[in-house]
Amino acid sequence: MSSSPDSRQQILGALYSEHHGWLQGWLRKRLGCVFDAADLAHDTFVRIAVQNELENLREPRAYLTTVAHGLMVNQLRRRKLEQHYLDALAQVPANQMPSPEAQAMLLETLMEIDVMLDGLPPKVRIAFLMVQLEGASHAEIAQRLDVSVSSVRKYIMRALAHCLAVEMPAV
């Protein structure tokens, strides 16, 4: 049972005016930065605005912090990946450096891949990436990871099945 647009607006408005300041403070304590906290508080409300169940919120602050925490973890993860990306980019010879547009697109792609592979055990992840990005044979991967070739085959199948499940179009 979903609410009418008008009542949704009212609930959201009430949530915002009652808790926005508090949430921003909560985030500032954790992030140590006013601007990040403001951005994330805003993103949290945007996220909540597109959710369905709003009228049954018993503990609005617990709900808000759960959503905000998820976004915070996501953002840290993205920053970490971005840092690794910049480190890697620094190793690329100047004449092979992709254009700024290409760099930004590449970072987006890498983040998408990172999210898609999230939850796989490290060896499974590395094996799949070696296949996809290095074109490594299973024998080479087995040697590098110090496992059997048949394990590599299982890793590859598991990784692909995982990606297919993650990318399954919502029905």
Binding site: H84, Y85, Q91, L106, T109, I113, M130, R144, L145
Partner: peptide
């Protein structure tokens, strides 16, 4: 085609840069 939709994501990622970003620990 669904398999290709997955593998296609990697097609335009330069191999070395991708590996360095996605598996930054280089212990091996």
């Amino acid at each position: 085609q669904r398999v290709e939709a997955i593998t296609g994501k990697f097609e335009h990622v330069p191999g070395k840069l991708g590996m360095a970003t996605l598996t930054p620990q280089k212990r091996l």
